[in-house]
Amino acid sequence: MSLFREIISGNRQSLAQCLTSIENEDDNYHFLSEIYGHTGNAHLIGITGSPGSGKSTILNSLVKLMRKNDDNMGILAIDPSSQFTKGAVLGDRIRMQDLLGDKGVYIRSMATRGALGGLSNAVAGSIDVLDAAGFDRIFVETSGVGQAEIDIAANSYTTIVVLLPGAGDSIQASKAGVLEIADIIVINKSDYSHASLTKSHLLEMLDIASHSHNIDNNSINSSKNIWSVPIVSTVATSGEGVDELADNVYSHYKYLCDTGELEVRRRNRIRYIYRLLLQKQLYTRLENILLEERSIQQLELLMQGKNDPYTAVEHLMKWFDTH
């Protein structure tokens, strides 16, 4: 049986080995191009937030709840690799005890392996494999991120941003970054003090954002087409508020389908992947050019002052245009 057949027939071991081969960047171009035609059916959901904000614990309760409606759910849980030793502790499963042993849930822990943005380079390919394997909803949990890691939005259709009470004031809430990519905001650990203050700062921020959005798109969108970002307060350890979060995930997906926004996001994701692959190939080519004899000679000319780097690059770019 071909690897692809094994995967869609539900063989978890083949699925897992396939994701390893994507992580290890083995030569799997033919396989990935074979499955591409079977992708595009899953609802991709990203969950991001700072370290310790409760992303894994929320997923534990959320996926357990959503399993009542979905047969197959996949989770890619990313944790950071050490820049020094390349090692990693992948501890997201620990928080997902309620999902272990559930045959309808596949959890895969992944290390960032030097990638920035809270993801691993294997995420895009792994999502496609899970999608082709027939998973209805695929969650990607980023490693703990700070303010500006927004790659998750390019890899998902619904992005959940998890915040903590008391983590910053109204100025923090108005900064650019992860809050801009949120389709749903969760204030987790909302039994802590300051939770209501945090919520009011965020509401104020969202109110301003939706107001300016309305002005910008006045003539294009009628107001019913605009998604207003909900703020859900949760206590993930007890499951409080998670039903409201699940409702919002469903209604966001409905919004995406009803308004055609899903197609827009699919297009963005494909463009992102296309760009990533192209970038990687071009970068390898660039590295090779730098090793070529002409580059070494060019460097010598630059050292002797017989040429300058600006002119050298201009000439090289002209050479590219004609080759």
């Binding site: 978890r12 071991q13 050490s82 090692g87 501890g91 499963r93 620990i94 042993g101």
Partner: peptide, 29 residues
């Protein structure tokens, strides 16, 4: 220690049954 040695370590947490351990080993390859 394994992390320091450059390995990726998946820790299951406490109180796992033998079949949960094998399932995790399969899912995580």
């Amino acid at each position: 220690a394994l992390r320091e040695a450059g390995m990726e370590v998946i820790y299951t947490g406490l109180r796992q049954s033998p079949s949960m351990i094998v399932e995790a080993a399969i899912e995580e390859d």
